[in-house]
Amino acid sequence: MIEAVGLTKRYGRTVAVNELSFTVRPGRVTGFLGPNGAGKSTTMRMILGLDRPTAGDVLIDGRHYRDLHRPLRHIGALLDAKWVHPNRSARAHLRWLARSNGLPRGRVEEVLELVGLASVADRNAGAFSLGMAQRLGIAAALLGDPQILLFDEPVNGLDPEGIHWIRQLMRRLAAEGRTVFVSSHLLSEMAQTADELVVIGKGRLIAQSGAAEFVERASGAAVRVRSPQLERLRTALASTAGARVRDEDDALVVTGLTSDQVGEVAAAQGVVLHELSPQRGSLEEAFIRMTSGAVEYHAEETGEHLHLGDAGAEGQR
């Protein structure tokens, strides 16, 4: 279990992470979703005690990372596959890591087998392809057989086979009851692997919810309607609870209602419809809209202007 409370990181005047609070629970894959530069890596470095939070706190099973005895046995992480000495062999890299946490040498061979690097373990890590480097990073994360795992953009730059392998691995680790926290900037990727999502944009929490639920919301079923009696329809829809209406060419685009509901409203008013079509927006498009305009999104959601300081807190509800 990872718990962040009011986690904040400032670099000079830049705020990288802003009062971020979330919980990562065991037994499932939790996706950490946000566009590049949203503060995902900074957050992960703070979880591992590498960067010191400006404010707030993050705990691993109730303890600070720095207070963990032999931390690799509690929490394994792959933050960047390039964090290896290029002239050191993969085996030597894992060997010093294992030694630092009192892990037996045999464990190095086990994880090398597990990630399929046993045959190239004596090659220098600098000669590895990105996929191999990624596997070496995962071997390092699994070294201490930890209950909690952190992966920062693990599928970046991998071929389809590698992506498939990593997805399977994360599912398996979660199924074993471990806590798996994995970041990505691709919603479509997370939709396939994560059970739960922590979504951030510009360092703030936008949402923490079930993955399916979030995807449903993000793809935001909009309904396009055309009618010769457009004004009457507009008035009727505007007075319907939860509906938001905007103009698009000679049609209305309604969000917050299903196409069934829009049809019923029209029928009740005796309005003739020339078109009634659900618009399934692209997942990624919707996600970009939500994260880049974090404030806009919430202003729209609550129907009132929000100050920057409220947006993060709003997202948690």
Partner: peptide, 18 residues
């Protein structure tokens, strides 16, 4: 300095926070 250059210092401090 090579530990800083190749960022293995982060891995070192991750393995041993002291």
């Amino acid at each position: 300095t090579t530990e800083y250059r190749f960022n293995t210092i982060k891995v070192s401090f991750q393995a041993t926070p002291r």
